[in-house]
Every structure is written in C-alpha cells, then in structure tokens.
Amino acid sequence: MATDRSKLAFWLLLAPCLIWLVTLIILPHVGMFLVSLREKVGVREYETSFANYAVFLNEPLYWNTFARTAYMSIAATILTLLIGFPISYYIAKLTRGRTKTTSFLMCLIPFWVSELVRTFGWMILLRETGVFSNFLQYLGLVNGPIEMLYNDAAIMTGLVYTSMLFMVVPLVTTLDSLDDSLIEAGYDLGASGFAILREIVIPHAMPGIVSGCIVVFMLSLGNYLTPILLGGKDSLWFTGLIYSQFITRFNWELGSAFGFLLLGLSSLIVFVGLKLTGQSLGKTMAQS
C-alpha cells in the first residue's frame, strides 16, 4: 500500500516534466523529422526521401554557413571561458560577503532587460553614428565616421556578452567549492601561481568549465537575434537560414532538415568536447 502511494507520488511529481518533454520537445521533433523526410514532387504531392538533406549537401552556401556557425560558436565559447574564468575566480575566491553578492549581481543585472534591448544597446554603441565612432572622432584618432557593426567582431562581442552569465554561474559554483587550503598547500609545496592554476584550480573546476561551455555553445549556436542584428545581412548564421526557409520561403521541408542538421551538429560537438576533456555529461550536470 505504502509503495503504491509512493509510486503514485513519484509519477505525479514527474508528470509536469514528462508532459513538457513529450509535448514540447519530443512530439515537435518527431513531427519535424517526418516533415524533413518529405520531398515535394507536385502540388500537395509528397514522397519520402532524403532529398532535403541532399539539397544541403549540394549547396556550398548552406555548407559554409553551417561550418561558419559552428566555428564562430566554438570561438565565442572559448572567448567567454577566457573572460569568464578570471571574473569567476575573483568572485569566488578573492571577495567576501557584500562585495561578493554585489559583483555576482552585477553579472546578473544586464539580464533584467530583454535580449533585444541589450542588442540594440550594442548597436547604439557600435554603429556609424554611434557612441564609439563619435568618441574616436572627438579624440582625433579617426578622420571620418567608422562603421563597427555588421562584421564578425560585432557578432562575437554580442555572443560573448549574451552568454557571459551562463559561464560565470557554474564556474563560481565550482570554484566556491574549492577549499582555500588546497591552494595554500600547493603554494606551500613550492608551486608557482601558474602551476597551482594548472594542477589544482582547473582540474577542480573542470565540471563547471564543461557545463558552462556546453550551455554557452548551445546558446550561441541557436542564437538568432544577436547575429542578425549585429551581423546584418552578411551574418550567415545557420538559424537565419532556418528562419528564412520556414517564414520567407514557406519551405518547411528544407527548414526541418536544417533544424535536424543543427541538432546533430550541436550534439556531435558537445560529445567530442566531453570526450576530449574526459568528462561525462552526468557528472558535469550533477555538479553544477
């Protein structure tokens, strides 16, 4: 009787999660996969084939955009890690009490406004008539207005900025759990600051680094707003292609195929990343 009760409670508590997963994730994906396998042969006539995937393989623009999205996202992830790690270390290890809360909050505050507004903020700073351009002209460093929007650097800035919090939170959590006496012990045994970082701090923070990187990579790969707004029409972001297939071209079949390719790509890169760092997904996610 008691076991029946606890079983019922288990399923009831699991129900919201299951409903969410099935109706919003699994069902749409199954539907999308079926759509992606349909080839339009005439008006309202479809055949099952891999033709949509063949279109992707035969068109270099799609290919290149796909690869570019991947390496730009990887670059954004690495950059976020390089900038986020010192920030997290500072918050977790070098500040106490109030300062700690304040600096953590300062990382969070930008997320109180919507991503759209934040991206427009960057546009105001970077555009031809924007703050940076005017400031450089005022200083006399440049002669005319300069355009800093609509290039890869602008996209990169936006991506790193958008995902910083998702790197800092898991890193602060893992670094917080690193006992200060381990660092002191390393120092006491003759290690230099760099050796301590390499042999003690980074191995300890590895689960946090990996989970932060996975989240940031996924966010960057699936980001639509930032690349389009900051990169302009040349941004060539894969999500942009998917959007245009679905909305502009009404080609749901190809759009679905693209969607599945992106899913495959992100899964593959995360898998390779985990293998390279010797971490497992379960271990990483349980820690943070």
Binding site: D179, L182, E184, A185, L189, E199, H204
Partner: peptide
C-alpha cells in the same frame, strides 16, 4: 612545509 588542519590532500 605545512600539514594542514584538514590535510588539504589534492583530490584530483
């Protein structure tokens, strides 16, 4: 050299 209160052995 110092032996720490909680030993501070490196778990990694």
């Amino acid at each position: 050299s110092m032996v720490f209160q909680h030993l501070a052995l490196f778990p990694m």
